[in-house]
Computed example of a mutant assay.
Amino acid sequence: MSEEDQIEEMMTRVRKLELKARRLVRESFSGEYLSSFRGQGLDFDDFREYAHGDEVRFIDWNVTARMNVPYVRKFREERELSVVMAVDVSGSADFGSKHLSKRELSAEIAAVLGFSALQNGDQVGLLIFAGEPVMFIPPAKGTRHLLRMIREILMAKPAQKGTSIEGACDFLIKSLRRKALVFMISDFHAESLDKPLGKLARKHETVALRVSDPLEEELPKAGRVVMVDPETGFETLVNTGNSNLRMGYKKLMRRQAEGIASVFKKHGIDSAKLQTDRDALPDLHAMLKRRGRRRK
């Protein structure tokens, strides 16, 4: 396939993804997004007479002196957010045994969240990362801006195939001057998670969306197969017909998933597990509803 044909095919995929994401936002996502994520501060609105139960710290003493009765400052929530999608495009992101690869699922989720953010007046930005930060697109508004982000997620070809959550977190901490909402979209198969995610969550509101494929969690009974690590290129011959090996692998993957979840919980990071073999939206919905209930 020529480079021109590849670009045309990619643009067709982006256009289809745009239509799907817009439909999902229109049908169900916009309201939940609005109720789950708040603005980053308060703007002064007006004055009103003090009422029992008002906080004393909001009394405006200059107005109170002029009116001879206590007056308090009213505020309205600043709705606009800076939303940043931090998307993992490492070697393992291109794996998918069912309907989508993990990278394609990440692009779909980024599109849905991105259109939800734009519809609510928020700015959206993107960090693509693998073994190192690959590309950063600062937060801005506009459909063309978001479509460029989706295209870059699908087309990125990182030089380093590994996964560095630490590098991504450090980059965001240094680059984002205002407090932002960060969606970290990755399989989180990385050596260092605890300290980097903790530092990021202390500075920015952080949500972890863990993309996963069923074959990563449980080996099929397929006899002897050569398994290749997509990030290092290391090959090993595995006898998947061995039931003890399959059971040991399943336990290992379960312990790894529990370890990742414990890091999220430790740092108060909301999370959702999204799988390539099923509709990811119900799990995303459930996470947004949990956030919305806590806010209320």
Rank of each mutant, 00 (worst) to 15 (best):
M1T: 12
E3S: 04
Q6Y: 04
M10R: 14
R13A: 08
R13E: 14
K16C: 04
K16A: 14
A21S: 09
A21L: 03
A21K: 02
R26A: 13
F29A: 01
E32T: 08
Y33N: 09
L34G: 04
S35W: 13
S36P: 13
S36D: 04
D43Q: 05
D43N: 12
D46P: 11
R48L: 04
G53L: 10
G53Q: 05
R57L: 03
R57I: 14
R57E: 10
F58T: 08
V63I: 04
T64A: 09
A65N: 09
V69Q: 01
V69K: 08
Y71R: 00
K74E: 10
E78S: 11
E80P: 13
L81N: 07
S82I: 10
A86T: 00
V87P: 03
V87M: 04
G91F: 06
A93H: 06
F95K: 08
K98M: 10
H99W: 09
L100T: 09
S101E: 14
K102D: 15
R103W: 07
S106L: 09
A107F: 00
E108I: 11
V112L: 13
L113T: 14
F115D: 01
A117V: 15
L118N: 12
N120M: 11
Q123V: 05
V124S: 08
L127V: 03
A130R: 03
A130M: 08
P133A: 04
I137Q: 07
I137V: 15
P138Y: 13
P139V: 13
A140V: 07
G142M: 11
H145M: 13
H145A: 06
L146F: 08
R148E: 13
E152P: 00
E152V: 07
E166P: 01
C169W: 10
K174A: 13
A180N: 15
A180K: 10
V182Y: 09
F183I: 00
I185E: 14
S186V: 06
F188K: 00
H189T: 02
H189M: 12
E191L: 05
G198L: 01
H204L: 07
V207F: 11
V207S: 12
A208K: 00
S212F: 09
L215I: 13
E216N: 15
E216T: 09
L219K: 03
P220T: 01
K221D: 10
V225R: 02
V225H: 06
M227P: 15
T232D: 04
F234V: 10
F234I: 12
F234W: 02
L237C: 12
S243G: 02
N244Y: 08
N244K: 02
L245K: 15
Y249L: 08
K251V: 06
G259Q: 13
V263A: 00
V263R: 00
G268L: 12
G268A: 15
G268E: 13
S271F: 11
Q275I: 12
D277E: 08
A286W: 11
L288Y: 15
K289Q: 14
K289D: 01
R290N: 11
G292M: 15
R293F: 11
R295V: 13
K296S: 14
K296C: 07
